[in-house]
Amino acid sequence: MSRLHVVSGKGGTGKTTVAAALALALAAEGKRTLLVEVEGRQGIAQLFETESLPYEERKIAVAPGGGEVFALAIDAERALLDYLQMFYKLGTAGRALKKLGAIDFATTIAPGLRDVLLTGKTCEAVRRKDRGGRFVYDHVVMDAPPTGRITRFLNVNDEVAGLARVGPVHHQAQAVMQVLKSPQTAVHLVTLLEEMPVQETMDGIAELRTAGLPVGSVVINMVRPEILDSAAVEAAAGERREAVAEMLAYALERTAHGGIRRAGSAGQLVGPLLDEAREHTERLALERRGRSSLEGLGLPVHELQLLGEGVDLAGLYRMARELRRQGWSE
């Protein structure tokens, strides 16, 4: 079973929300989960209605059954200071480099180094054990960069190859890749049943597979209910449209309030209703094609319903329960 869950997705698909819900689901029944943020947006703090996360692991939620969710916002600059202290014992000198702006300079001219620092800190949490030899966290969930950047972000070994072929940076990148390309890791992609997110998800999975990175599941988020049954869909979209319109107008005139009958507006109401029904059928057809394409990838596919009232803390727990119901509880 994977212990590092990397959650990515096209912008606007709700990947941060899904990552948070997954952390809650995996922490149930007494387990401990670490939820990691690497983009500096403080999206996790907003979802859990807490203050901005510092560069330290902090408990932010209790899962059903007594489990705990911790969160960490990784800052590349602070991670580099840790790195310099760990490998070069710089200490005060490292802090002086920060004041001189050398750290920003280093991560700007070598973007791959930033990714090594962010993924390295996450992988350290995956490997960390307590004095009894047990893992400190049962699972680590990363709210990762979007689909278009996820393969490059995770494939840090290639990114730093031009920076260092030997030494601590090289060894750190290799240690990170040992985790990221192992069965301990699964990269999950969040999508919507819309053309662009579905296509980007399929392209992202192809890139991940080419890079040898382990793909986990596809999560279809914000799934809207199907309002019409198949017979109604066929009637609204097919040749029977005019006959349906006449029947609806007649029914409205017979049953509607007297004001509608006097105004003779029943026919005017039917047209827009049928137009909406047709648009609904077109959307359903698009969603079914998208779902079929995603199912053809040969990966587990999970679905989360659209929360009409928006995602608050209660909604987050509802999403976690649904993920557990769909088997995502280990």
Rank of each mutant, 00 (worst) to 15 (best):
K98H: 11
G298F: 10
M142F: 06
P183T: 02
E124N: 10
V136P: 04
G94M: 08
T147G: 03
E68D: 09
A231W: 12
A21T: 00
M177N: 01
L252G: 03
A25C: 05
V36W: 01
L113P: 00
E37N: 04
Y88T: 04
G133A: 07
D115S: 08
D138F: 08
L286D: 05
S8E: 03
V18H: 05
R291M: 10
G167Q: 05
R324N: 02
A186D: 03
Q174Y: 11
E322Q: 10
E276L: 15
R283L: 15
A251S: 13
V36E: 02
D203F: 12
L304Q: 00
A277N: 01
G112Y: 02
A231M: 13
L286I: 07
T122Y: 07
G112N: 00
L26G: 01
A102M: 15
A251C: 12
A27R: 01
E309Y: 09
G259P: 08
Q172W: 13
A71R: 01
E207T: 12
G264H: 08
V140E: 01
L100S: 08
Q174R: 14
Q326E: 04
V38Q: 01
M196K: 11
F135W: 12
S265W: 11
L118S: 02
V141N: 04
R288C: 05
D275A: 14
A314L: 13
G65Q: 05
D75P: 05
G9T: 03
R254S: 07
H170K: 12
G216Q: 02
A106F: 13
A110F: 15
R131K: 15
R262L: 13
